[in-house]
Structures are given as C-alpha cells and as structure tokens.
C-alpha cells in the first residue's frame, strides 16, 4: 500500500523579514513528524540557508518576488521544496569549499550550499532561470 503523502505550503514575498516565519513553519511540521531536536535544528538551518540564497542571489535583494516553501511528507521522507522565479545558477559549477582554505582566507558568505549538503540527506537543484528554480531538501524520517 502506498504511504500517505501530506503537503503543506507557504507562499511569501522574498524578504529576509520572513525567514523567522519560514523557520517556524518548517520546524513545526518536522516536530509533528517526530524528528528529535538535533534533526529539527538541521532542517531549520538548511531551509533558512536555501531561502536566504533565493533572496540574496536569485532575486539579488528584491524583496517583493515570489518565494514558495512546500513541505511534503510520507512515511520515509521529509521533503522541502523551495521555489523561486529569479536568476538560477549552475549546480555543476558549485564546488564544495575547501574549509581550511576558506577559513584561512576569512571569506565572507557563500557557505549556504555547503551547509545544506552537510545537514540534509539529499539536496537537489532544478534550474530554469526566470521561470522556476527549485531546491529540494530531504531528511529521512527515522523508521
């Protein structure tokens, strides 16, 4: 029997002002699914980093563009899909930062994707710049 899929959606303008609300939205659902605090904190940070990237990079600070956060859960996966219509990027060009070099050069910013990949079980990018860009973050639900 196929497991039941539940969907939750939040549509907001692309302002960093809404990050707190987005974090609350996602962590409340994650708590309901039964994740422990450590996993909830990881999901919270990964989603924040993805949404911050949309505001800062996809929309370059324009805070009136569409930002959609959808959460889909089934018995095995907790999936968050973050969509925007801004400038995309080429996921293949994103390199995992060399943290030692990074820290020694004291660079600012650009850690978001590294964090998403470290914190989540699956991270996937689908890019159609100007039409629809999506970041999918997945955390496996403990069985």
């Amino acid at each position: 029997m196929a497991s039941k899929v539940k969907k939750y959606q939040l549509k907001l303008p692309s302002s960093t002002n809404h990050l707190e609300l987005i974090r609350e939205f996602v962590t409340n659902i994650a708590r309901g699914v039964g994740f422990d605090d450590e996993k909830i904190n990881q999901i919270e940070l990964a989603v924040d980093e993805a949404c911050t990237n949309v505001v800062k990079h996809a929309y370059q600070g324009d805070d009136r563009q569409p930002l959609d956060v959808m959460v889909q859960t089934d018995a095995k996966k907790f999936k968050i899909i973050i969509s925007d219509k801004g400038r995309g990027f080429s996921p293949k060009k994103i390199k995992t930062p060399d943290m030692k070099k990074y820290l020694s050069e004291m660079r600012v910013g650009g850690l978001g994707i590294y964090l998403m990949q470290t914190l989540m079980d699956e991270v996937d990018f689908k890019m159609e710049p100007g039409k629809k860009n999506q970041v999918q973050l997945v955390k496996y639900i403990p069985q």
């Binding site: 940070l45 004291m106 850690l111």
Partner: peptide, 16 residues
C-alpha cells in the same frame, strides 16, 4: 536561540 551562516559571516567580516 538561533544562528545561520549569515550570522557567522559577520564575525568573518571584522576579525581581520
């Protein structure tokens, strides 16, 4: 209660 990489980045920006 919470920090993201944007918060950590602030410290990187001034430490030097």
């Amino acid at each position: 209660g919470y920090i993201s990489s944007a918060g950590l980045g602030v410290f990187m920006g001034f430490i030097e």
